[in-house]
Computed example of a mutant assay.
Amino acid sequence: MPSRVVVTGGSGKLGRAVVADLVATGWEVVVVDRVVPAAPLAPTTRVDLTDYGQVVEAFTAIDDRYTGVDAVVHLAAIPGPGVATNATIFHNNTTSTYNVFAAARQAGIRNVVWASSETLLGLPFDTPPPYLPVDEDYPARPETSYALAKHLEETMAAEFCRWQPDLKATGLRFSNVMEPGDYAAFPSFDADPGLRSWNLWGYIDARDGAQAVRRALERDGVGLEVFIIANADTVMSKPTADLVAERLPDVPLRRPLEGNETLLSIDKARRLLGYEPQHSWRDQV
């Protein structure tokens, strides 16, 4: 019998790709969201994640749709700084994520994957990073209320794992999510490298983001792990070493840079998840 997974925010840009990937690989997917799309890829129930009671019910049973859930993928959130007021973003995102973690524990769910964020690396890098490529080893550096909420979500996850030693919680620090239709604009970035330097010229194809989610659900072990999830290349045509020499000449390099390789290190995700990006904007333009 297939494993049942609840995906929050399944109607969003990343959520649609995640739902499609999980359905295609044999998961029984249930979507909970504030928005029900006209042509959903999986059964969808309208749920307000800031209401704890609704989240508990969504993770246990909804009438004749299902009873019991094996895993949760939490993607729903106000998706970035500036989309709403600072306090609105902070309260919505922290409350929703607390409710997801707490309701999963209450429902006996021991496999939780959620969308953390590249912003914890110090975006928009007005203060340069400590070294390049950036990775998960240095402390989080939230610079916005959105990033602060993501930082507290990772802290919450660590405590939930301490309270529940058999819990597997995986935070995925996604880069800027892109779909194939977005790639037509990428060649224009070459005119001014500063336009995309705010996240070290990184991105994540939604389909590769979905691959990372699936691999996180399937990873062995328990406890908290956090991974940067980006594509293997940058959004630029210029070699990465040249971008660094031009824009961040004083930042130490931990190793030589080759070609257009990402400055958002995915080494840990490759090593522990078996993650390997399959889609590049260069194949689409």
Score class of each variant (00 low, 15 high):
Lys13Ile: 11
Val5Gln: 06
Val244Phe: 03
Ser145Gly: 11
Asp64Gly: 12
Ala17Asp: 01
Asp250Asn: 14
Ala184Arg: 12
Thr50Arg: 15
Pro37Met: 15
Phe227Cys: 07
Ala241Ser: 07
Asp135Val: 07
Arg282Asp: 01
Leu224Asn: 02
His151Asn: 08
Glu261Gln: 10
Arg65Ser: 12
Arg105Trp: 00
Trp201Gln: 03
Asp267Pro: 02
Gly9Ser: 09
Leu263Trp: 00
Trp114Val: 02
Thr8Ile: 10
Ala103Glu: 01
Asn86Thr: 14
Phe160Trp: 05
Gln284Trp: 09
Gln284Tyr: 14
Arg282Gly: 05
Glu246Ile: 10
Pro252Cys: 15
Val72Tyr: 02
Ala158Cys: 08
Arg162Cys: 00
Thr67Ile: 14
Asp233Ser: 06
Met236Gln: 12
Leu195Met: 15
Lys13Arg: 15
Asp64Ala: 13
Ala77His: 03
Ala149Thr: 06
Arg162Phe: 02
Arg162Tyr: 04
Phe101Asp: 01
Gln211Cys: 09
Glu28Lys: 08
Leu148Arg: 01
Tyr98Asp: 04
Leu264His: 03
Arg34Lys: 13
Ala115Thr: 04
Asn260Asp: 09
Gly202Lys: 03
Ala77Asp: 04
Glu159Thr: 11
Ala58Cys: 08
Val213Ala: 01
Leu22Thr: 02
Ala245Phe: 08
Thr44Ala: 07
Thr50Met: 10
Thr67His: 13
Gly221Met: 14
Ala245Leu: 12
Gln54Phe: 09
Val32Cys: 06
Glu261Met: 08
Ala39Met: 09
Ala191Trp: 06
Val29Ser: 00
Pro252Leu: 14
Ala185Trp: 11
Val83Ser: 13
Gly15Thr: 08
Glu276Gln: 12
